[in-house]
Design a protein around this nucleic acid. Sequence first.
DNA 1: TCTAACATTAACGTCAACGTCAACCTTTGC
DNA 2: GCAAAGGTTGACGTTGACGTTAATGTTAGA
Lengths: 141, 141
Amino acid sequence: MNKYKIDDVAKESGLTKRTIRYYEELGLLEAPERTEGGMRLYTREHIEHLKQIVNARDVLGFSLQEIQDFVRIREELEGRKQVYGQTVEDAQQLQQLLEIQTSLDAQIRMIEQKMEKMTEFRQELDRIYTRVTDGIKKFTP
Amino acid sequence: MNKYKIDDVAKESGLTKRTIRYYEELGLLEAPERTEGGMRLYTREHIEHLKQIVNARDVLGFSLQEIQDFVRIREELEGRKQVYGQTVEDAQQLQQLLEIQTSLDAQIRMIEQKMEKMTEFRQELDRIYTRVTDGIKKFTP
DNA sequence: TCTAACATTAACGTCAACGTCAACCTTTGC
DNA sequence: GCAAAGGTTGACGTTGACGTTAATGTTAGA
């Protein structure tokens, strides 16, 4: 089966059920299909998406608000696809793309800055590490 | 003068006075010297230390607790220096160094994992960026 | 020396990001 | 077909990381 209930999703993502619902409530995670009775039915895509969110949260230290900004970009791109058939004005479409590009630019610059700082931090750790191993050598000739 | 009062430190570090005192309360920042009347007098070292904390917090997304772990390592190393004169048993010193080394190992591995994930994230951004610029090209031949 | 400008502690307030609990409804396995 | 297991929506509780305010003391400069 390719439909998952919330507890399956919780187990695979490492999040609690509460958190998963909370992310949906915030608009971070797309609201899944429901059964007749109201039970949420997730797809693989939801799970992958959640893993990305966890990544951004834990690894990049993004707030849920910041992640929201990122998700919005993704959704605007998806949204564009859906209206492809209808004749949305070209100028407007272009305008939208340019805005997304600006947003992306900012995000990429931010990531690069973070990686730079992280490298610095790593080097600091390395320096300390060297000092420690040198110290150990003195005791174990 | 090489002594700073809390407002100077606040201005240079970008933190509020409240936050600076809070970090001291948590043990993140070393308690500074005081005047007769009880006013805190910081040194350049305090300021640099604070900047590192801000970096770890904002860039690496560390919680104050995680930063605390890092600060502890630094302090244990400094602490070792101070007792250098006294005859602390060699075996004990070595033991301490080995513990620090283990701690550092874990931290370095964590950082490396974060950088890996960050690279993934960057690539994802690049992919999206490409799609967007391709979309723009279609409108501007 | 006296006052305006800044510091200190203590205590309560706030906001994000969930945890937890209750009351109730669905599914599932025997 | 029925009980146990699991899901749903509120709603209130908690924790971390500070903000804010009050009451009071300290410094610096005219």
